[in-house]
Amino acid sequence: MLDTIKIAETPEGVELKLTCVSFFARSLAWGIDALIQGFIILLLLFVLPQLGDFGTGLLLIIFFFLHWLYPVFFEIYFQGQTPGKKMMKIQVLLIDGTMVNWGASLLRNLLRTVDFLPFFYALGVATMLMSKDFRRLGDLVANTIVVYKRELKEKVLQNQGETEIKAYAPDMALSAKEQQIILSYAERVNHFSPERAEELALLAVPLLNDLPVSQQQEKISSSASERILGIANYLMGRR
């Protein structure tokens, strides 16, 4: 199965999913960062030379740090996110899912020079195409990976208001994946057309057969979709 997910396992045996980022989102993040850097330089170029030679010197020093250490600074102190990466909701991690350290961040950013060769990140793009997790040369050497930053969204079931759908337990053991999908169905049911929703629900034959006695009495004609939602409510913990 083709996917862009890389699994990292913590020493405690917990599996973490890292979603790799290819050059589309990354180049945009790079563009935003370049704009910010360019803007700062432009501003300073306007202000600092007024101070004479000292201003020029200061400008060069700032330019040096902006050019080489701007990404390192942000990656170390802002959870692997430069402003551009933050906007694109991506972040740099070590391959094992932990935060980048000084050495790795310095390496991957110094090696931009090589990724840039022979012209405008051509080598970097080529390496990203060839490597499994979209890593450019700097990432390969520093053993880092760029991933989408995980966010925990408050998930709200669409049918929350319809409390009349009674939670009931499925009479078969469901795997984690199956549970997830049933919840996902409940979440997205309002995005489907009613026909499609019913059609999907009808597929899950074994879940529909054995309606609990109580429910049969209450609502004889409950649709397949409603029954799946009832199971979803049960899985949500509304028992």
Partner: peptide
Amino acid sequence: GWDIELVFRKLAQRKH
């Protein structure tokens, strides 16, 4: 809901 369809189908295959 392709992902839902896939899993529901497998679920059905499992039992009936």
